[in-house]
Structure formats: C-alpha cells, structure tokens
Design a protein around this nucleic acid. Structure first.
Lengths: 150, 150
DNA sequence: GCGAATTGGTTTCGTAATACAACCAAATAT
DNA sequence: ATATTTGGTTGTATTACGAAACCAATTCGC
C-alpha cells in the first residue's frame, strides 16, 4: 500500500469532505461531540475505541479544525475536545445520516433515539429544496462540473 | 483484531448508517452512482480504486440494498449497478457532505462543481427545520434517548 | 498530606483491511 | 478471426487497526 488515497485535490466537495471525516471513527467522535461529550475518557467509554486510535483521531480532527483542544480550568494541563464552528457545520451531515438510518435500518417495532427541537420537543426535519422553496430529489438535480482545462 | 466493530445494534440511527456506508469507498461509489455511473469499469476509472476492493464494495452495497445489479440488455451476463430506492435516500447525506465541503474545504478563488436544480439551474439548498418551519441548528436540538431497560 | 484511583495517553505486537500487479475467461469490437 | 475491453480473481506487500500492557501526571478519599 502506498497509503490511503487522498481526495484533497478532487474538484468534488463531497469527496473532499470524505477526505476529512470519511473514516470509520471520525464521524462517530463528532456525533458524540454533538451529544455533549468532551473528554478523552468519555469518547473512549462511549465508542469502545482503542485508546491509541482515539488519540490519533482526536489529533487529526483537531488538526483539521473540526475539534479544538481547550485546556480545562482546574489546572490547565488536561484538555476538553470541543466542536469548532467548522465542526458544528457538520450538523446537517449528522442529521442526514440519522434520517437515513431511521428510515431504513430499524425494524418496524424497534426503538431508536430521536432528535427533537429543544423548544417544542418535536422531531426535526431535513429537506433539500430550490431557492424558490420547492422540495426536490436526486432526479431533479444535476451536477455542474468545472471545465477541465482551467 | 477481532474484526471491525459493528454498530448494527446501536440505538443511534447515525451509527447504524455509518455501519452501512461509513467506510472509505462506499460513499464515493454512491456519489458516482448519483452522478450516473453504472459499470464496474466506470467506477474503477473514476475512483482509481483497486479492482478487488471495488468488487468487494459493490457486492456489499448490493447486499445492503443500496445498489442493485441489473443484468444489462445486450447479453444479460454483464450487469449495471444502479441505486435502489433505498440508495437514493442517501441523497441528503451526499448533499450535506457537499455543502460542508463547499463551505470549508475550498480556497477563496478555487472552483468546484455545483449541484443545481435541473429546471432552473440554480444551486440547491439544504436545511434543517422544525415541523412548524423554523430553521434550527445543533444548539436548538436535543437527543431523546431510548430508556436503557427495554 | 498520603495512598489509591482516574485520566490521558504511549508502546508493542498480532491481525485485518487495503493496494498493486499479474493473470484470466467471457463478451464485444474490428 | 483477432484484438480489445469488461469484469473480475488471485497472489503478495504494506498499512491501519485493535488489544493489552505500561506509564506519568492529576485528582480523589480520608
């Protein structure tokens, strides 16, 4: 292996995103971060991830600007891992994954957690629409590629 | 290694989704499928993926119900890989990834492809909102967990 | 203040996942 | 009929990952 292929130079924004958060653990860590976890041990306990791998992923996510390592108050030597503004912009990705899972990956009677509006307690919705408000699906869209020679 | 951890039993829908499409190549294949690619060689050329890995991923995606292998007309022995209805439900995930990439992973002057409304040619939007139409962000939501003992 | 436990890792080692290249049979093109 | 493309399979090498042991610094219990 010459190393996992990098998509940094791809013209497709989805590909670049996958380059940043497309590995097995990163998005799960981000999910837990959205869920309020901040400490090394919390992530480790929640995910059951090997500690060396967690160390690596946290560092990578920090270096990519998704998380930041904030020195924690008591003595300053321990850190809390918090989502940056950039990291919080992954929210739609998390919601989209959740929505897909809810629809297709649970049995009829099977329970799952639900993301709700904090104010009213009602489930949150996601949709894709045009600028004039029409909700659209994959068949209603097309990809405008960047001309090759540029 | 005892094998990569499975999230099938996780109560969190996002985790289950990652279990299905969370590996390095699967979502890229799905992206290409949304982009209209159907043949083994097309995926292979587009992604630069090793052929044995592609074989494995296509099979897995078919077994998971994301793609279907449709015998192609000419002789029936070759197949085309097409998104199923379930696979097409990954559209919001792709759009969310795209949106994140566009915002954070491109330099100021750097060009990227754009997903547009086929009818009007205008960029599509994604947002997350409550049932009564208010657009909300991560801080406005909470996770309703399933009670442990059930 | 002292010992014990917790936190946040690092190191070592074995295994699984992945890449790369060579090969191949069937289908298709010329 | 021959050449090329398609859609793989089968090695082999390398890398990523998981498990467990270990460790220094902090925090907790008393």
């Amino acid at each position: 292996m010459v190393g996992r292929k990098s998509l940094k130079g791809d013209y497709c924004p989805s590909a670049r995103s996958l380059d940043v958060i497309g590995d097995w653990w990163s998005l799960l860590i981000v999910r837990d971060a959205f869920d309020g976890l901040t400490r090394f041990s919390e992530f480790q306990k929640s995910l059951g991830i090997a500690k060396n791998i967690l160390t690596d992923r946290l560092r990578t996510l920090v270096s990519r600007g998704i998380l930041e390592a904030v020195p924690t108050g008591d003595s300053g030597s321990r850190v809390e891992y918090r989502l940056t503004a950039v990291g919080r912009d992954l929210f739609p990705v998390m919601v989209a994954l959740r929505q897909f899972g809810e629809r297709h990956l649970f049995g009829p009677g099977e329970k799952h957690s639900v993301l709700v509006d904090r104010e009213k307690g009602l489930p949150v919705h996601l949709d894709i629409h045009t600028q004039d408000g029409r909700t659209i699906g994959p068949d209603d869209t097309m990809l405008l590629k960047i001309p090759e020679g540029e």
